[in-house]
Amino acid sequence: MRIADLHCDALSKLDRDAKLEWSAPSGKGLDVTAESLANGNIGLQAFAIWVPTGTPKTPESVLRQAALFHDKILSAQGMRLVKNGADVEAVLGPDASERGALLALEGADALRGERWALRLLHRLGLRMLGLTWNEANWACDGIMEPRGAGLTKEGRSLVAECEALGILIDVSHLSEKGFWETAELARRPFLASHSNARALCPHPRNLTDDQIRALVAANGLIGITFVPFFLQSRRQAGIDDVLRHVEHICTLGGANHIAFGSDFDGIDTYTLGLAGPADYSALADALLARHAEPLVRGWLSGHARRFLTDNLK
């Protein structure tokens, strides 16, 4: 069955190391490559632009990664830019014959409040935006910012403009206050592209039960991630831990709002059995051993397909 993955950091790696090759065999410095997507039967992969600490946070830094997305990712044979519902159907629908690449931004820091940069990125295909990455910026506080503030005036305006453009708001990494302000402000469904359940693993980056219920009530989407320390805080994380988070979210009414956001290329250590896109087959087998096939198909791609088709205008 085809897979949808809501988050990876291959673009940031490609930007930092010019020697890396998107077309090289998987394992040559990149988790996510053209080959590994094919091996994992990934129908849709979201590629996040992320400007790391130590790199100038400017619109130019963001646009450079957008250029890499077009020059490298989209140049692969059979790779389609996902901008709207028709594109989603072409890569995840029953007659899918292509693979889809969706452009995301992880952290609005480098936009520096410049709306021309946001609009240009939208023209280049940006369809998902995370307001911050852990820290505070001009738009909001991240979850690791000690003061725990929410959205700024400019951040509220950013949410409104993204919704007007058709850019999905991603609340992974956002402070709790920022989450609740976004939930109140949003007029369209929003998502957490790569976050798990805090009730099972008490990392601040994970979602509380109330946040999960709010995402479900907003008809949103939760991308369970494979980051080991978001899955398990006491021992080596494995595929069974992924299932625990899936099943916990189901108990909160979220069975029809679960997807996956691996965070491949954004992690240095891996969950046992999940080291790259090709390992989705092992996850699928583990899910099928405990749950009905229609549910598993929904988690692997069906819910992402519905959410994106409905909300990418």
Rank of each mutant, 00 (worst) to 15 (best):
Leu30Tyr: 05
Ile42Asp: 01
Pro59Glu: 13
Leu81His: 09
Asp71Pro: 00
Val88Lys: 11
Ala34Phe: 08
Ala18Leu: 09
Gly54Arg: 14
Ala38Met: 10
Leu30Lys: 10
Ser12Phe: 01
Gln65Gly: 03
Ser23Gly: 03
Gly40Trp: 07
Trp22Thr: 02
Ser61Val: 13
Trp22Gly: 03
Gly43Val: 13
Ala67Lys: 15
Ala48Trp: 04
Asn41Gly: 08
Glu35Cys: 03
Asp71Gln: 15
Lys19Gly: 07
Gly29Ala: 07
Ile42Gly: 07
Phe69Leu: 06
Asp15Tyr: 15
Ser75Asn: 08
Trp50Tyr: 15
Thr53Gly: 15
Ala90Tyr: 02
Asn39Phe: 05
Asn84Lys: 07
Ile73Gly: 00
Cys8Val: 05
Val62Ser: 08
Met79Lys: 02
Thr55Ala: 14
Asp17Tyr: 06
Val82Thr: 09
Ile42His: 06
Thr53Glu: 15
Glu21Asp: 15
Val88Gln: 10
Lys28Phe: 04
Leu44Ser: 09
Ser26Phe: 10
Arg2Glu: 01
Gly54Asn: 13
Ala66Gln: 09
Phe69Thr: 03
His7Ile: 11
Arg16Asn: 05
Ala90Val: 11
Gly85Ala: 09
His70Ile: 03
Ile42Tyr: 04
Val62Arg: 10
Glu21Leu: 11
Pro25Tyr: 02
Glu21Ser: 15
Ala48Asn: 02
Phe47Gln: 06
His70Ser: 13
Leu30Asp: 05
Ile3Arg: 01
Leu68Tyr: 05
Ser26Cys: 12
Glu35Gly: 09
Val88Trp: 07
Gly54Pro: 11
Leu37Pro: 03
Gly40Val: 09
Lys57Val: 08
Ala4Trp: 07
Ser12Val: 05
Arg2Val: 12
Thr33Ile: 04
Ile3Trp: 02
Ser61Gln: 13
Ile3Asp: 00
Gln77His: 11
Val82Cys: 10
Thr58Leu: 14
Ala48Lys: 08
Lys28Leu: 08
Ile49Glu: 03
Val51Cys: 13
Asp5Arg: 14
Gln77Tyr: 03
Ala86Leu: 05
Leu63Gly: 05
Val32Asp: 02
Ala67Asp: 14
Asp17Ala: 12
Pro56Lys: 14
Leu20Tyr: 03
Ala34Tyr: 06
Glu89His: 10
Asn39Pro: 00
Ala90Gln: 13
Ser75Ile: 00
Lys28Tyr: 06
Asp17Val: 04
Phe47Asp: 04
Gln65Val: 03
Ala46Met: 14
Asp15Ile: 00
Phe47Ala: 11
Ser26Ile: 01
Gly85Lys: 08
Lys72Cys: 01
Asn39Cys: 07
Asp15Ala: 15
Asn84Arg: 09
Thr55Met: 14
Gly85Met: 07
Ile73Cys: 04
Leu44Asn: 02
